[in-house]
């Protein structure tokens, strides 16, 4: 009995020893030279593996950083300037400061402002719905409210607001990685500069229909009236296809455009309330949207619901 134990230990030990010797030589023979800085850079990165930098994961980004001659094109949106400075130090080249960005939802067509004209009951997935038709409202550009962006968010920085049927970005959690931008089949979400003191101004609409049609389907749509364009002294606003767009690199956050917008399509975020006209009374116009004769007239129902709520 004891013999078996001893023999087993000796044989297994011997096999182990021989294998160790072989492995030792093989490892030496096939050793892959790797820049030790890759490991260091990877350690400095946030390890979110979100893909926001354009690489599949943090390791791939670290490899790209070490190989690159300059960090102009490389940026980790999650880590931001601090992490990039650290990375630059490890590699020994200069860091490029970039403005922090944040995801912005360019649609305000809530149940209240954008009546539903039909009822979608297919698979709850924005891309599938987009492949089927233009959406459950008259606006074919607006948010479908099925939450693919929320599912795509790696940082739990988004949620669906059940009252409005629109996604909401939690500003403190959003890292600007752009996963939601890529997930949205309607291209509603945009990454914009966070701005000074986190203040931002943007057009919360991407409807390219003519003004009358846009307004008929959604009371807070951009109608392309050009009022903001005329008001802006900094050439920050362009109008294309009946839609205004504010260039965040040119915008100086003067808020003049916000004041003149007739449909309240331009949103200001994190500004102190105005002296004359406090921000919270600036609710969108309560216009009666022309009733559609569509087959499933849940718009009517929604309007009734809203009345009871307010």
């Amino acid at each position: 009995m004891n013999d078996i134990v001893i023999y087993t230990i000796i044989t297994v030990g011997a096999i182990g020893l021989v294998a160790a010797v072989i492995l030792f030589f093989v490892a030496k023979q096939f050793y892959v030279e790797e820049d030790p800085r890759i490991d260091k850079v990877e350690e400095a990165l946030p390890s979110a593996n979100c893909g926001g930098c354009g690489y599949p994961g943090c390791r791939n980004f670290a490899e790209a950083c070490v190989k690159a001659d300059s960090l102009d094109e490389l940026f980790c949106p999650v880590g931001g300037n601090d992490v990039m400075k650290e990375v630059a130090e490890i590699i020994g080249i200069e860091a490029v400061e970039k403005q922090a960005q944040i995801a912005v939802i360019r649609c305000s067509g809530s149940f209240e402002y954008r009546p539903r004209t039909n009822n979608y009951d297919g698979a709850a997935n924005c891309t599938i719905a987009t492949n089927l038709y233009s959406g459950d409202t008259g606006c074919q550009y607006g948010c479908l409210g099925l939450g693919e962006c929320v599912d795509a968010c790696t940082f739990d920085a988004m949620y669906m607001d059940e009252k409005t049927g629109l996604p909401v970005v939690i500003q403190d959690k959003c890292t600007g990685c752009g996963d939601c931008v890529r997930a949205c089949p309607k291209d509603i979400i945009e990454l914009r500069n966070k701005g000074k003191k986190d203040r931002r101004i943007f057009v919360s609409c991407i409807n390219e229909d003519k003004g009358g049609i846009a307004k008929k389907h959604c009371s807070v749509a951009c109608i392309g009236c050009s009022k903001c364009f005329k008001e802006c002294n900094y050439d920050a606003i362009t109008i294309k296809n009946f839609l205004a767009y504010i260039d965040y690199n040119k915008c100086v956050l003067c808020r003049k455009c916000v004041a003149v917008c007739p449909t309240d399509a331009i949103h200001e975020i994190n500004f102190p309330p105005r002296k004359k006209k406090p921000a919270d009374t600036k609710a969108a116009p309560k216009e009666k949207v022309k009733e559609n004769t569509d087959l499933i007239d849940i718009a009517k129902k929604n309007q009734n619901n809203n009345k009871t709520e307010s």
Partner: peptide
């Protein structure tokens, strides 16, 4: 629902 086509392969219309 108003469907263009048959019940198996048709498409529901969003407006008539």
């Amino acid at each position: 629902k108003v469907i263009s086509g048959g019940p198996m392969m048709g498409r529901a219309l969003s407006t008539i």
